[in-house]
């Protein structure tokens, strides 16, 4: 990754929120698909397949954000400040928007 500016820096800048956006879209898509295919009725141990399927992309996104957070300083050096905030945005947004998965009723009743 280039140290000085350029698309590399911009890429790091938008990495966090992009990861959130991807997880959010995938989760929303899987939610619709799961309701159509009856996933809430299939239980995997204590939880339904539906909740696992929706939670998985978020867990993956959180993992990606953590990995990138660990690397951003070495990649960008003194320019790492704002991209690091971007990664935190991705992390917190993923946690926050996915929290309702634990409680809310999944499909139409």
């Amino acid at each position: 990754m280039r140290r000085v500016g350029g698309m590399g820096w911009l890429g790091w800048l938008i990495a966090g929120p992009t990861v959130w956006a991807a997880a959010f879209s995938v989760a929303y898509g899987l939610h619709g698909l799961g309701c159509e295919l009856g996933w809430p009725a299939l239980s995997l141990g204590p939880v339904s397949l539906q909740r696992v399927a929706i939670a998985l992309p978020s867990l993956a996104a959180i993992l990606v954000c953590l990995v990138l957070l660990a690397r951003v300083k070495t990649a960008l050096g003194p320019e790492a400040g704002i991209p690091r905030l971007g990664l935190w945005i991705g992390l917190i947004a993923t946690l926050y928007t996915m929290a309702p998965v634990l409680v809310a009723t999944s499909c139409r009743v």
């Binding site: 926050y96 929290a99 309702p100 409680v103 809310a104 009723t105 009743v109």
Partner: peptide
Amino acid sequence: TLTLAAALWVGERILPH
């Protein structure tokens, strides 16, 4: 977060369960 928790709680209460 407080607001969201209240929203989810009331939201579940008024659903047709």
